[in-house]
Nucleic acid binder design. Structure first.
Lengths: 336, 336
DNA sequence: CTGAAAGCGCTAACAC
DNA sequence: GTGTTAGCGCTTTCAG
């Protein structure tokens, strides 16, 4: 068993209150007493038990974070942002992975509350209002990050997806692409962020006097881009498409993989762009032109928000929008 | 403030011990009392405070994990393995990222101990004995995962790197590659796992009557493979190399990127293989032939080990070796 | 400036 | 079966 405050007090021949005062610098202590205490602490290698401390102060210095899957690189970036800011204020992170199970997410919220976390950040990929309800019940500060769904009335941080999408279309047009196909992951756009993205795309195309063409793949993973390659290819050929705008980098990469396996070259034969700027986007060849969703910043901003709320500032429930950035790389060919 | 055990006791008109008994199922309770307690719990939405519970039971149900960078996909896989096994036994994870700082790792160990974690798993990329010393001081169960360095006398889990390396060489020879270049990340091999890998490579080559050629790049990241592309290319040309065996998938991918940018095709012009089987290896084109280091399993096995030790089993300090697996994909050309 | 004492929310003897 | 009580290790009044 490691040393307790009592042991230190005994060795230093002072009361435990005095020890507590020196370790917390909470009240003046005579130089003499402080010296003795410090010496005792050093000799015993004493470290305060945070559990006991938390029990009385009601501050666990813990933030719970529920993610879909830490194996997704964008999720990892969000977590990095959260942790880094947390560290600055002595907060630790307890990590839970839900792998898309709503039930698991709700269970984790409860579990985290029992562990007395001071705030919760969720980086989810599911569509649900139950989570928000469940968490509101505990009235603990929280932020709900979701790159796919639009969970209403939930504090979150994102970019202006409509603007971003239009910006991409403009860029494609500038490089001479008149027929650009949009690949979406969901047919039912209603509650998703896709709604804004498709809006931006459509507006952009219409503005230029073009005709929007969209194709759904029913998923947002690399496999979905790959497995729907044939379908996309058909759409490309049928409409003389020269550039395809995928709603997620993963789909774009899956598609390029499919094209690669078919002997079709990107961007020589067809241009492909993504959305998100996951880390793979710049590693992959050809390097992917895409819209940057600053995941690290999403995490960092979310954490800052939680911290503010913990410190009593009134929570700003509004959606925070970070600047839009178009990353030009090499998966688009200039066909002017 | 949320309800406490006292509130429940009062509402149910029983003592707090009875409440404690029903929530822990620790001792028989009359059906009548149980019913009342359950009802009260339900009405109040009572959830036991884990902090208070931990203080008395001395079980935090927390495992600390210190990683280099969760943004590395292999690290994320390790964490997944740890978490998944942990969940099965009601353990939560508190995550700390050191970004390669030895000082940070040591600080985190202390911090985690203060949080009363019951075990620590480190997935580090640095070479140090201080960490092991520091952690031994606290005599808490721990496992030290490191895919680069060989930290002596530290419980760990790995694969038989020498065998793996030889296996790769054999495979390359079978496909007709007589001149295979080994790309290592470190010049000073002594304390690294590279020692075994190079040993396996050298033995393999020598067995076949070939001549080992090794080239160092001074790092194990994608950039290192990329930035040393010219150097590697020279070695290839000078020695009529047909296959290059990179000590890490990252280097292999960096190298293939360099080659791609130079217009050199893999595997048509030269074959390249890696080591690790990071998730990128199967996403990348060409799909990378490599040695699988089962990261998820590393994490899972490490966690199992910690759990055993927590449950009083005598710790097995030996290195655990998981089976070697060669993953044949498409970055090697059959030149027979 | 310092110590005694109460108490955070809970578990675990210990009596009854 | 059930209640009383003594802590777990710490912070924080409250006297002095």
């Amino acid at each position: 068993m490691s040393a307790t405050i009592k042991d230190v007090a005994k060795l230093a021949e002072v009361s435990i209150s005095t020890v507590s005062r020196v370790i917390n610098d909470s009240k003046p202590v005579s130089p003499e007493a402080r010296r003795k205490v410090l010496k005792a602490i050093d000799e015993l290698g004493y470290k305060p038990n945070e559990i006991a401390r938390s029990l009385v102060t009601k501050k666990s210095n813990l933030i719970g974070i529920i993610v879909d899957d830490i194996g997704n690189s964008y999720v990892a970036q969000i977590v990095r942002g959260i942790e880094e800011i947390g560290r600055m204020y002595k907060y630790d992170i307890v990590l839970c992975s839900s792998y898309g199970s709503e039930e698991a997410e709700i269970r984790f919220i409860q579990l985290l509350m029992q562990k007395q976390v001071e705030g919760i950040i969720i980086a989810s990929e599911i569509e649900t209002t139950k989570i928000a309800e469940s968490i509101n019940k505990y009235k603990v500060p929280f932020v709900y990050l979701n790159r796919l769904y639009n969970i209403s009335k939930t504090p979150t941080v994102t970019i202006d997806n409509e603007v971003a999408s239009r910006k991409m279309v403009d860029y494609l047009y500038e490089l001479g692409h008149k027929n650009v196909l949009y690949v979406t992951w969901n047919k039912n756009i209603e509650l998703t962020i896709e709604k804004s993205k498709i809006q931006g795309y459509t507006d952009g195309i219409l503005n230029r006097g073009g005709l929007p063409i969209v194709c759904g793949v029913g998923g947002y993973k690399i496999e979905d881009g790959y497995n729907n390659g044939e379908k996309i290819l058909e759409a490309i050929e049928k409409n003389n498409v020269t550039a395809v705008f995928c709603c997620q980098d993963e789909i774009a990469i899956g598609l390029i993989n499919y094209l690669y396996d078919k002997g079709i070259k990107v961007p020589e034969d067809v241009s492909v762009v993504g959305y998100g700027d996951i880390s793979l986007a710049s590693i992959y060849r050809p390097k992917l032109t895409t819209i940057k969703e600053p995941y690290y910043d999403f995490g960092a901003v979310a954490m800052r928000r939680i911290l503010k709320e913990i410190n009593g500032e009134i929570p700003d429930k509004r959606t925070l929008k970070l600047p839009v950035q178009l990353i030009k790389r090499e998966s688009v060919k200039d066909i002017n």
